[in-house]
Structures are given as C-alpha cells and as structure tokens.
Design a binder for these strands. Sequence first.
DNA 1: TTATTATTGTTGCAAATGCAACAATAATTA
DNA 2: TAATTATTGTTGCATTTGCAACAATAATAA
Lengths: 208, 208
Amino acid sequence: MAKTLDETRLLQFKKNLSNCVNVKSKVFYNKELILSYSPIKKKIGFITEGKANIVKTDKEGNTTIMRDLKENDIFSNLFFQETEDEIYIISNGETKVIFIDYYNIIKNCNQNCPFHNSIVLTLFDLLIEDNKQQNEKIELLSKRTVEDKILFFLKQRMNKNNIFKVTTSYKAIAEYLFVDRSNLMRELKKMEEKGLIEKHEKTIKIKS
Amino acid sequence: MAKTLDETRLLQFKKNLSNCVNVKSKVFYNKELILSYSPIKKKIGFITEGKANIVKTDKEGNTTIMRDLKENDIFSNLFFQETEDEIYIISNGETKVIFIDYYNIIKNCNQNCPFHNSIVLTLFDLLIEDNKQQNEKIELLSKRTVEDKILFFLKQRMNKNNIFKVTTSYKAIAEYLFVDRSNLMRELKKMEEKGLIEKHEKTIKIKS
DNA sequence: TTATTATTGTTGCAAATGCAACAATAATTA
DNA sequence: TAATTATTGTTGCATTTGCAACAATAATAA
C-alpha cells in the first residue's frame, strides 16, 4: 500500500504552493520563535527542513514541550485556543519553514488555478497526519506508569534490531513524556534489572 | 469575529454532502461500535446528533477513554496508527453519524460539481477544530498534579457564573483526566477545604 | 587550552497517587 | 414493587513519583 503522503507528492506540493497562493519561506536558527498564538494572523506553517517544538509556558513559568515537529510536519496558530498558558513554536536547530496564509486557502485563488485543489487536498492529508501524531501522544500520556510510557515510546521508535538510540538527550525525552528526569533514569535502571531493556549510555535495546 | 464553523455553514455542509459524495447516515444506540481501526476502509465520520467516545483497550484489558466527541465533531480511522492497543469509537447514548468515504473526498467527484470544494473546505476546518481539541487534551495531560488537571478541566467548561455541572459522572471525569477516581474525589475535597471550589454533589463552583 | 555550561547518573525524602475495599446512595431493570 | 447494578464518598496503605541536591562526565564557548 502506497503511503498517502509520499516524497513525490510533497515535492509537488512545495512547487504548487509558490505557483498558487502567497507563501513566505523563512529560515530560523536554534531556539528562535517561529510562531505564537494570534487570533488575527491565521497562518499554517510547513517545515521543509529541520525540527521544532510546540512549547507551552504556564503562569508560574513552567515550560513544557507539547509536541516534537520535524520535516514535513505542519503546524498552525489555528490549532490552539486562547488559554492562560502561552504556546509557541520554537525552532530546534536550523529550521526552514514555509508559511501559508489561511485566507489564501479558503478563498479560491483564481477560478482556473489548477494548483489550488491539489494544495488543499495535500494540506488535508497533512492535517490528518498531524492528527494521528497527536493521538499517539495522547495514547502515550494515557499510560498509567512511567515504565509503560517508556516502553510505548521506545517501541514506537526502535529500529528493526529493537534498538533505540537517544539522539537528543534523556532530559528531552523526560520532557516529552511529561515525567521527572531523575525518575526516568531510575525507571530505566529498574527496567534493565527486570530484563526488559539493555542500556549502554545512549543506546537502548528493547527485549520484550 | 464570526466563528469559522457556524451553524449556517454546518447546515449547508450536511446538505451538500448528500448532493455530492456518497454518504451513509446511521443511528447508533448506547454503547454501540461506530468505527474501529481499519487500514482498508478509510472513512470519516461526522456526528450530527448525540455523543461518542474514542476508547482504547490495551492487551491487559484496561480501557481508557481517549476522547469525548459530541455533535459536529468528526472522527476517522485515518487518525490512528496500528498499535498493540485496540481503538474504537463507541456511541454514548443515541448517536447519529454521517459516514464519508475518504476516496470520495480526494477524488474530485465531478469536474463541475459546485459542492465538492465547499465540502473539502468544511472538512478542512473540522479537522482543524479536532486538532485544537486534541491540543487541549494534551495541554490538560501535561499538568503535573491532579489538582492542576481538575482546575484546567473545570475552567474550560464552567459557565459565566463559574459553575460546572457534572452531567456525566465523576467516574467518567476521572477516566477523561486519566486519574484514579478515588483520588479525584479526594482532591476535590482538598480543593474545597483550600477554598478553590465549592462542591455540592454534582455542582461545582470555581472560586479562583 | 581552560573555563563554563549542560547532561548524566544517583540518592534520600516527602508528597502525590493508585489500589483495594467498603458502606451509602442513586439509578436501572426485572 | 423489589432486586440488581452503578455511582459516590471515604479511608488505609503501599507504591510511584517528583523534588532537591550533588558528583561525574561530556559538550561547548571563551
């Protein structure tokens, strides 16, 4: 079964974008603000290179990474309701983004533009993909114990040899799982003692 | 500012659906299976009446309510990746659903059909709305303590007089927050003692 | 290179949480 | 109606978890 969103289609999408609607491409360096909540300027962003995080800061100043975004992911300020917390999209390393104006999408650019339809349908599928990723995060967070969260996380990301390499940091993983870092380390040790995993610094082998 | 998805537009959407793509309308009674994971039959559902839940069952048999769905919400088996857990959409009371075939959406039904474009754009906005709800759930789950989760939940749902009425049950709320029911009750009592809320059986007044 | 900053690994401890169990109601069904 | 089932409210207790603190190491910047 062919993937709904294959490379060819995404390449076409990027080409079509500039031919049809008004888009802006921008490069961000590490830890720069890509987008914040705004009820007026409704924008959809598409990451063409690099990584980013959806970050939340509550009124006490606690910061939480709500989502990890990577190449070919979309994001938008349309996805957030106004709350007491502040939500931002922050680049994680050098990141290239295409911004699409929401109004350009809903208003048919030009009766005869052959690109518009295709763009809307690709955005539609990108939205579905994003939705899927969110459901996975909710599923992860629904796990009762830290051990269950870790196992779910590892199994999703391990390669064919059941190995997961920590390319970011344990700190980042703890933040992603919404658990305390020291507790993550402790649970990993317990899991190793139980024989569920084998851990050598940043390489983890899943044995169950 | 006019809401993106107002009543008029949703009414038009429902009308257009039957004029354009092949849809099926179906009524479900309480606790019936509306949709399960299927990689073959890709369907999008739209709830026209009633309520439903996205329910997950893991291999140990633990059941979790992942999402609450209500009138004008959409759902789809496209939103879920295959996992060890089983995910279903289950009706919660009498529920009326319109099913739309995914292929009908991505294939332009007919070059001159004036409805198709409008349907796709409404689905697009419904997807954004769903995305927003998921982000709210992730934000809720990112709260560190049960008290924080309760407060976030209550503030989102209280009326102008800061009152929230439990129309479902405390059991259902505990499931939605992914916390133990007895602990939810205990925390509510503590919060009342602290003066954060006033609780009289199924009526809660938020005082902060 | 050295100094500075960030990450990792570890632990004690207090607090939060889930689990089990039960009685009292409330709601539903026979 | 009575019987059955589900929900609410409560508690003791064991476990899990987060917090704070620290040393050791690794990574980065001066």
